[in-house]
Structures are given as structure tokens and as C-alpha cells.
Design a protein around this nucleic acid. Structure first.
Length: 581
RNA sequence: CGGGGCGUAGCGCAGUCUGGCAGCGCACCUGCUUUGGGAGCAGGGGGUCGGAGGUUCAAAUCCUCUCGCCCCGACCA
């Protein structure tokens, strides 16, 4: 490909709205263009990258016998009512949905469990047809509450989703294990440094689940990692043992204290500086929503810990959970917001506690009266300890459940997520088969997603410098960038063309910068920005058939003959392939 | 959904407070000179100042409404 024939425009300045490097660099290099919030046009360069990622995804899936197909983006509401997910997705506000000409409610698919389950159940009658794994690569639609970071969190994005169907839990686990290996191979081949983590299965539902996180400080997800045990989990999922609370010096009887305007832990610490955070209990009020009812939930939590709403939603099995508003707080506590406590809540409030409150003695808590808190409260003596559940967020320094090794917190970008769904969807939607004994059973499902466009963005997030992107060779838009110093010079034109044609003939992706009247400096700057891994400079030694060979990151370049350059390029490609397999 | 901010040339921005010729840098076009890390000189083109309404002799600027985009919060009682 000759650059002179491409719509190639680069910008000198970062776009004003780019928050992360991958976004800014791809915009500057013209890889994409924003059409609306979280919605982008992928330019020719970007599309080449995406197709390379897709090709790797396809190869690795096909290798284990998964079969590619394509499902519709538009899905009827009925299907989502069968699985029971319509209300939850609408509640969360992420579903693009509208009425068609006839007035039927439809949505743009954010995922395809309903469609694939319907498809498979109509085809499969017998255990002899299972197992089967199907996948597609397709644009997905999610009306994200806050799209951001360019391709990282878009409202329209490219995703590979795969679904496995098995005859038993054991067989499902085997399919899942196979896919886990497929995922490791894919991300390794894409040149990414990543961490697989145990995860929550969220709105999709199900049991076993693992996320693949690209290591990056700018990642949106926090990960709890235990290096000693080579274990990692999403903080939403991780469970830990936490430090024991401080013991009070003496046992005093419970009493109310005036705490004017002390609505937060910090305010209270200012009033009672001798009280440790571990003996200060927060009472957080939530409004939980189910399909058929709503209830106010109060959750006790130790002052130095934080609550994890995902764990709360999972425990309550509700479709929505949000902090109670001021009116609801007043109804539940009879006080202004800021003074909620476990004693004297309205009858209809359901009181629960995070496990962090266990063993806490002589604590402070809200008084359910404006400007009042209880002090020196003891469970057992002053009130019954509510049911305790792990609702907490793991913090740095927490211990693992089964050892004394500690967690640290890191960040990552979720590029893949695999789930064992079990029979959740097959039961809801009646996907059954006849087993060896003519007995009708539900299929055991797994689902497996990869954010293809997000993989491309995270590759840049992980591989760039102050001058631009540095693509891993297997997913680079082109493999070789020929920088011709002076287009129009006869020797250079001839040599550059010869190299370009020879590489193309060898099946190597090559980009030739043959733009005229552009200074060498400008060409080098553009080459650095675009970040193609291998580089050949055709310049002053062209008459002697000599060129310079280097990489995007090498300090200098070696002066070599054209033939030597081709050999070096082939060797570099073979090397990249070898290190990734 | 709440709070804040911003919409002026393809991109980055100034001008808005205090109403009075619509500007700068990059990019683009023409010519000449340049050519190994974003070349120089000269000339030039490009704007319904997000949109609608209002105030005024006069509106990018003031007022009202509206649309879009960005950031923060959506996590503590």
C-alpha cells in the first residue's frame, strides 16, 4: 500500500476530549473519528488492526472446533422476557430499545444468550448432537451510562461472543476449560500482558466466571492480586479476611450523645478522636427493587471498610439497587440523613450487616435521631447482631481466606470474560435434549466474550511512548513501514517500489510512505505516531541498493542491502510468531 | 439522574466579563527555494460563532429556551 494513495491525515495536537493515551494517539493518527458519544468511525488503518485481531480470534476458536455464525443485532422484547432479563437491562438503562413500525418493542443486542439459546433449542433434540460451541463477531450495542476513553467504553463496539452447549455440568466445565485456554492463546498472540482473574458473573448470571484483564494503570477495573499464591480476582468478587477490630478498654453502657451536624465518619472522628474507625459502624440505606416489590435495606459496615453493591445485589437477588434518597432515609430513620443506625429503624426496613462488623465491641452508630449517635453499643447486650454476609470490598493488605498471604490492588482493562452459565437460560427458555434413557434434560451452557475493539485500544494503552503507538507485530495495521526520504528521486523510487513489491509478493503487509514534498522529519514523526513495528528507510544510499533497517523502538538503524533487509524482516516476523505460540 | 464546564475554520485555541471590522497556531491551496527527525519566504481559500427566539441602532458577546459534547459524582448515612 502506498501512503500517497490513502486518506492519511495526522494531527499535531491531542484532541481536547481524549483522556487516555490510546484514545489520543488513535485520534491523532486518524485511526478513528467520533460520530457521537461512545460511537466511532473506524478508519482504514484501524479496520486493518481489528481484522487482524479478529483473524487471531477466529483461528483459535476454529482450532478447538467452535463454529462461526452470525446472529441479528435486532432482537424482540419477547425473547428477553422469556429469559427474564428485559426489566433488569431496562432498569440499568443500558439497553437501546424502541418500537418498530407495528409497535412491537425491540432492542439492539447488547449480548446474544437469548437468540443463541432459541436457535440451538430448535435444532437440538438428542444428546448425540452435543456438545457444540458457536461464535460470532459482531457489533454490540450498550447505552453506557458514561461512555469514555475512546474505544474502551463505547456504546457501539465489536465483540466476539461464543456459546457452548453441553449435556452435563462436567461437560460444561470441560468446554469452559477449553475456552479458557483459547483465551490465553488469543491474548498472548495479540502481544498483550494480561492477568486472568476470578470474577462476578453479573447481569448475565451463572456460576464459574473468569475475566481476562490487560494490565494497565488506566484500567477501569480494580483487581485484587495475591502474588504469593498466583491468585487474582475482581474486587467485586474477591473475598478476604480482614484485620480484627480494636478492642475497647472497658465496657460501658450504651448511651446517646449529641453529635450536631456529624454526618460522616470524618465528622465523627473529629468529635471522638480517641475512637478507632474499626469501632465506628456505618449504616447504609439502600432501596432494592425486585420485579414485584421494593424494600429499604439497611446494611451495617465497619467504618474503615467499604460496601460492594454487586455482592449486595447478588445476595438480595434484586434487579436494582441504589442508595436511598433523602425522603426514604427520613421514613426509615425518622431523622435527617446522616444519623441512620441499627436501633429503632422503621419496621419495614430489612437490616443486614457486612461481615466486617463481626467481633466489633463497644461501637458508635447512628441514633436514628437528628444530631444524635449511640456510643458503646454491644451486640448481644444492646441489640441482636443482624445476619452478617460478605458485602465488603477487598482492600490492599487484606489476607486471603485460606492463608496469611496478602492481597494488593492493581488495575486492568477487561478484554475477555468467560462464564459457566449452567442451565439458567436453557431452563428459562426451554432448551432441552433427550439423553441416552429418553429422559428430557436441560442443556448446560457457557458463554465467552472478547471485546475486539477494546483489545486494539488496550494494546496501545500498554504499548506506546511519547512519540506514538507501538503495535505488537501480530496485530499491527501493517508489518513493515518503508519510509522513502525523497519521493520523486529516481533511484529511491525504483528501490522503494522493488522492496514494496517484493514484500507484498511474500505476503507481508507493507506500507510505503511515498508522499512527495514532505520533509524527512515529518515522515519519521508520522511513522512513529502510527507505530508500525518494522521500518525500512530508503534514502541517500539507494543508488547502491542499500537501505536502513530498524524497528519502531530501536535506537539506530542498520545499513543493509535490500536483500538483507527482506531477510531481516522475514526473520522478525517468524520470531514474533514463535514467541506467541 | 445530580453537579460543574465547554460548543468560534478540518484540529488546537483567543475573543464573551465591559455589545461596535471574526482572529491566532497547525492543517489546506498556488508559486519559488528547500529535503535525514514536524523546512523557509510570498500570496491565498475556508466561518449561518451549535440551534431557535428575544433585547438593541448594532449580538460570538446580554436574556430565555433548546441540542450536543466533556468532566466529576452516582461509594457511605
Amino acid at each position: 500500500m502506498r501512503l500517497s494513495q490513502q486518506l492519511f491525515v495526522t494531527l499535531r495536537d491531542d484532541p481536547a476530549d481524549a483522556e487516555v493515551r490510546s484514545h489520543a494517539l488513535m485520534m491523532r493518527a486518524g485511526f478513528m473519528q467520533k460520530l457521537a458519544a461512545g460511537i466511532y468511525v473506524y478508519g482504514p488503518m484501524m479496520w486493518r488492526v481489528l481484522r487482524k485481531v479478529e483473524a487471531i480470534v477466529r483461528e483459535e476458536h476454529d482450532k478447538v472446533g467452535a463454529q462461526e455464525m452470525l446472529m441479528p443485532a435486532i432482537q424482540p422484547k419477547e425473547l428477553w422476557e422469556e429469559s427474564g432479563r428485559w426489566d433488569r437491562y431496562v432498569q440499568d438503562g443500558i439497553l437501546f430499545h424502541f418500537r418498530d413500525r407495528k409497535g412491537t418493542e425491540v432492542c439492539l443486542g447488547p449480548t446474544h444468550e437469548e437468540v443463541i439459546t432459541t436457535y440451538v433449542k430448535r435444532l437440538v433434540q438428542s444428546y448425540k448432537q452435543l456438545p457444540v460451541t458457536l461464535y460470532q463477531i459482531q457489533t454490540k450495542f450498550r447505552d453506557e451510562i458514561r461512555p469514555r476513553f475512546g474505544l474502551m467504553r463505547g456504546r457501539e463496539f465489536i465483540m466476539k461472543d461464543a456459546y457452548s452447549f453441553d449435556t452435563s455440568a462436567e461437560a460444561m466445565a470441560a468446554s469452559y476449560t477449553t475456552m479458557r485456554d483459547v483465551y490465553r492463546n488469543i491474548f498472548t498472540r495479540c502481544g498483550l500482558r494480561f492477568t486472568p482473574v476470578e470474577a462476578d458473573s453479573g447481569a448475565i448470571g451463572g456460576a464459574g466466571s473468569e475475566e481476562f484483564m490487560v494490565d494497565a494503570d488506566t484500567g477501569e477495573d480494580a483487581i485484587a492480586v495475591c502474588r504469593a499464591r498466583d491468585y487474582a480476582a475482581n474486587v467485586e468478587k474477591a473475598s478476604s479476611r480482614i484485620s480484627a477490630p480494636d478492642e475497647p478498654e472497658s465496657e460501658l453502657s450504651m448511651h446517646l450523645e449529641a453529635t450536631p451536624n456529624a454526618r460522616s465518619c470524618d465528622d465523627l472522628l473529629a468529635l471522638f478522636p480517641e475512637l478507632p474507625m474499626t469501632r465506628l459502624l456505618k449504616t447504609v440505606l439502600y432501596r432494592a427493587v425486585w420485579d414485584d416489590r421494593e424494600q429499604t435495606i439497611a446494611i451495617l459496615c465497619r467504618g474503615d471498610r467499604e460496601l460492594n453493591e454487586i455482592k449486595i445485589v447478588n445476595h438480595l437477588d434484586c434487579v436494582g439497587l441504589e442508595l436511598a434518597d433523602e425522603k426514604q432515609v427520613r421514613e426509615a430513620t425518622g431523622a435527617e440523613p446522616g444519623f441512620a443506625g441499627p436501633i429503632g429503624l422503621a419496621d419495614e426496613v430489612h437490616l443486614l450487616a457486612d461481615q466486617s462488623v463481626e467481633g466489633v465491641k463497644g461501637f458508635l452508630c447512628g441514633g436514628n435521631q437528628t444530631d444524635m449517635h449511640w456510643l458503646d453499643v454491644w451486640f448481644g447486650r444492646d441489640l441482636e447482631q443482624p445476619e452478617t454476609v460478605d458485602f465488603g470490598v477487598v482492600q490492599s493488605g487484606d489476607l486471603m481466606l485460606d492463608s496469611d498471604d496478602v492481597f494488593e490492588l492493581t488495575r486492568g482493562i477487561e478484554v475477555g470474560h468467560i462464564f459457566q452459565l449452567g442451565t439458567k437460560y436453557s431452563e428459562a427458555m426451554g432448551a432441552t435434549f433427550a439423553d441416552e434413557n429418553q429422559k428430557i434434560q436441560h442443556m448446560w451452557m457457557g458463554c465467552y466474550g472478547i471485546g475486539v475493539s477494546r483489545v486494539a485500544a488496550s494494546a496501545i494503552e500498554q504499548n506506546h511512548d511519547e512519540n506514538g503507538m507501538i503495535w505488537p507485530l501480530p496485530i499491527a495495521p501493517y508489518t513493515v513501514h518503508i519510509v522513502q526520504m525523497k519521493a520523486g528521486n529516481e533511484e529511491q523510487d525504483a528501490l522503494a517500489a522493488e522492496l514494496h513489491d517484493a514484500l507484498e509478493a511474500a505476503g507481508i503487509d507493507v506500507l510505503l510512505d511515498d508522499r512527495k514534498k514532505l520533509s524527512p522529519g515529518a515522515k519519521f514523526k508520522d511513522a512513529d505516531l502510527v507505530g508500525i513495528p518494522l521500518r525500512v528507510v530508503v534514502g541517500r544510499d539507494a543508488a547502491e541498493r542499500m537501505v536502513e533497517y530498524g524497528t519502531r523502538t530501536s535506537e539506530g538503524r542498520d545499513k543493509v542491502s535490500l536483500e538483507e533487509a527482506i531477510e531481516k524482516i522475514k526473520a522478525a516476523i517468524a520470531d514474533a510468531g514463535a514467541s506467541c505460540s
